[in-house]
Amino acid sequence: MTNRPAKVRRRPSGPARPSLVALPILLMIVAGCDGPQSALSGAGREATDVSRLFWVMLVGGAAVWIVVMGTAIFAVLQPPRGARVGNAFIIGGGVVFPVVVLAALLAYGLSMLPDWAQSGTRLKVHVTGEQWWWRVAYELPDGTLVRDANEIHLPAGEPVEFVLTADEVIHSFWIPAIGGKMDMIPGRTNRLVLTAEKPGTYRGVCAEYCGTSHALMAFSAIVHERDAFDAWLAGQAKPAVVADSVGARRGRDQFIAAGCGGCHMMRGVVELGDVGPDLTHVGSRRTLGSGILPNDRETLEAWVRNPDHLKPDVAMPGYAMLPDADIAAIATFLEGAK
């Protein structure tokens, strides 16, 4: 060994190394604990509960771990002291203490189960998981549905009931900052009540693997003050706005002429198929492609031309057969459909 030149030199390892590697990782983890998709930021009552439950569980779990491990180490290090003392340690530290702490944690956790008795009067939002987007409908008090897609709007400070199901495969509905998550299962309706508290824009995701573009299935959750929410909902209930310009009107005609209406509802423009997302007010959404890209001209055109490039295996066919001018006109029209 000593005669051979050390061609392959092993990286020296020492006690300093792991901490150097761990530091940035730790920083990244800590950085992930804030922002629009953080379960610890507490923007909703349920998320706050979950967050508190997390800390309580952490403390309780840590106490059990310390006591049990402490007892074990104590037993190893100390000379024997007789069966009575030993039994007291085993029963006290190993059985009684964990049982009491865990029972308390269980009771605390169970006490947080939602109270279904007060169901009925609150706002209902129907959300259906599709591959890979969200079909959304707000149920008004008179039972009519206001349809939307890929965005959730909520009034601050009020419990909202989500009526969740799925189209073909299982998805999971999760707005970490507000609460959740809940599985969306084809042929079954799950209910989830959330109360958003702080107005703002948050990010929701699909939390159950659902196919090729599962990771590209997100949405914006926007929490408004009550008045702003009502105004927003009233706007959504109206038919599509066709901007008052030659370009937008030409775009509307191209939208119909390309057969887009076979799959997309656009109330007031074309009301036929209902396969893909409702586009009535697509221009007012923050994102395109279900929370993956900014809603701007460039993305709109790229999406119409070749959506599969942006979201692999998406059901929508590409419209690259259309001349650029037609795609631009359609983008102008969609952009203006606020």
Partner: peptide, 15 residues
């Protein structure tokens, strides 16, 4: 006129 939304069948009248 409405297709079969659950099975991704477009409305024929769209075109």
């Amino acid at each position: 006129t409405h297709g079969i939304p659950r099975r991704d069948v477009a409305a024929c009248d769209g075109c």
